[in-house]
Every structure is written in structure tokens, then in C-alpha cells.
């Protein structure tokens, strides 16, 4: 890594990265718990997820403050500056991921308790893919692993395809069973939220790629874009 900074400065960057990882850990648990609450129809667990989102918001504010402080006082350059900018952007995205988990948890009360509801069995499978993306992108962030980040970006297509098939499945189910329309509509939103979580994991992956390589992911392999932007 290109750094020209004091140990004190390195410890602040470490602190910033630690905060991002902590946010990521909370977001992961929020998704897992939200899906558990949905599948088991556990409204208490759903309330815990909704209440837990405040912690993510507080951490995001802390990341903002620390990042601004580092920029203002230390004028970071090169890799350090990329780290700080990536952290600022990633914290916003992880906060959004937490919001989607919260949104799923909020719907638990709106969904009838029917464990045998067939489309409901598809949701955990889709959630599993979205969760694995979030998990791996956080690992990639910790390890500054650009290859793993690209792998996460490529996985987004799977979530999108799954979303399309759940969408069709639910619409067909609604036509055949009009009495389940309100529950099925809620599940459409849940699937939509999971699809968005996958998109946001991809956004984080692009920023991990940026922080690790200095290149924008969209410019990779493009000869004109190969020069480092910072």
C-alpha cells in the first residue's frame, strides 16, 4: 500500500474500517433475523430487527464524523484517500441494506401465518443468495480482495433472475388464489427488497474494487480508464 502516514493516522483509518465492518456485521444479522422472523412468523424477532436499525444509523453518523475529521485534519493522499472515500460511500450503502432488512421485518405482521404458503418457501432461497453476497463483499472489504469483489458483482445476476421467477410465481399464485392476494403482494415487496439488497452488495463490491485497485469497476479493461484516478 502507498501510505506516507503516521501510526496515529493509520489507527484512525483502522478505526474507520472497523466501523464499516461493524456496520456490516449488524446488517448481516438484520437480514438473517428478518427472514427468520418472516418464515417463522415471529413478530417479536421482527420488532427486534426494526429497533436494531437505530444502531446502524448511529454507526453511519460516526463513520461520517470520523471520515470528515480525517479529511480535514490529515489531508490523506493516494490509497488513504481512497480508503476514506470508499468508507464514506460504503457506510451509506450498508445503512440502506439495513433499511431493506427493516422493511422486510415490518411486513411480518402484515403476512398471514401460513407456513404452507408455497411461494414463501422461495423467499429463504433468494435471501440465501443475497446474504452470501453481503457476507462475501464484507470479507472482500476486510481483505481488500478485488477478485472476490468482482465475483460478488457477477453473482447479482442470479438474484435478479430469482427475483423474476418469484415475481412470475407470485403473480400466477395471485390469479389462482385471489384470497391470498394481500399476503402474496407483501411477499412481492419482500422479494423486491432482497433484490435491492443484492444490488447494494454489488455497489459495495464496486467500491471495494475501487479502494483496492484505484480503478472504477466500470472502467476496468478499458484502455483509456486504466490510469489511476487518484
Amino acid at each position: 500500500m502507498v501510505t506516507s502516514s503516521t501510526p496515529q493516522f493509520q489507527s484512525e483509518i483502522g478505526q474507520l474500517r472497523g466501523l464499516i465492518a461493524e456496520m456490516g456485521g449488524l446488517a448481516e444479522v438484520a437480514i438473517t433475523d428478518a427472514i427468520d422472523a418472516l418464515v417463522r412468523h415471529d413478530e417479536d424477532l421482527a420488532h427486534t430487527v426494526v429497533a436494531g436499525d437505530a444502531k446502524l444509523d448511529a454507526l453511519e453518523a460516526e463513520v461520517d464524523r470520523l471520515a470528515v475529521r480525517i479529511i480535514a485534519l490529515r489531508a490523506p493522499m493516494a490509497d488513504d484517500l481512497r480508503d476514506v472515500i470508499a468508507a464514506l460511500k460504503i457506510s451509506g450503502v450498508i445503512e440502506r441494506i439495513g433499511d431493506y432488512a427493516k422493511n422486510i421485518a415490518k411486513r411480518v405482521g402484515e403476512i398471514d401465518d401460513r407456513r404452507k404458503f408455497e411461494p414463501l418457501t422461495l423467499i429463504p432461497v433468494m435471501a440465501g443468495i443475497a446474504q452470501s453476497m453481503v457476507r462475501d463483499v464484507l470479507n472482500a472489504y476486510g481483505a481488500r480482495d478485488a477478485t472476490l469483489a468482482i465475483e460478488v458483482i457477477n453473482r447479482d445476476e442470479k438474484v435478479d433472475n430469482f427475483y423474476d421467477s418469484i415475481f412470475r410465481n407470485l403473480v400466477a399464485h395471485m390469479m389462482e388464489n385471489p384470497s391470498t392476494i394481500s399476503t402474496a403482494a407483501q411477499l412481492l415487496f419482500v422479494a423486491r427488497n432482497l433484490e435491492r439488497i443484492g444490488d447494494h452488495a454489488t455497489n459495495v463490491a464496486e467500491m471495494v474494487y475501487f479502494a483496492a485497485t484505484g480503478l472504477y469497476y466500470s472502467e476496468r479493461g478499458n484502455p483509456g480508464g486504466l490510469e489511476k484516478v487518484i
Binding site: G18, A21, G142, A143
Partner: peptide
């Protein structure tokens, strides 16, 4: 292999 020198939360981020 990257965890040495990192903030401990990079290694263990579970709440």
C-alpha cells in the same frame, strides 16, 4: 491472512 494489523472488527464483525 490480512487480519494482523487491522482493526479487530475487520476480523470479527458479528455484533
Amino acid at each position: 491472512a490480512h487480519i494482523v494489523g487491522e482493526n479487530v472488527r475487520i476480523a470479527l464483525r458479528a455484533p
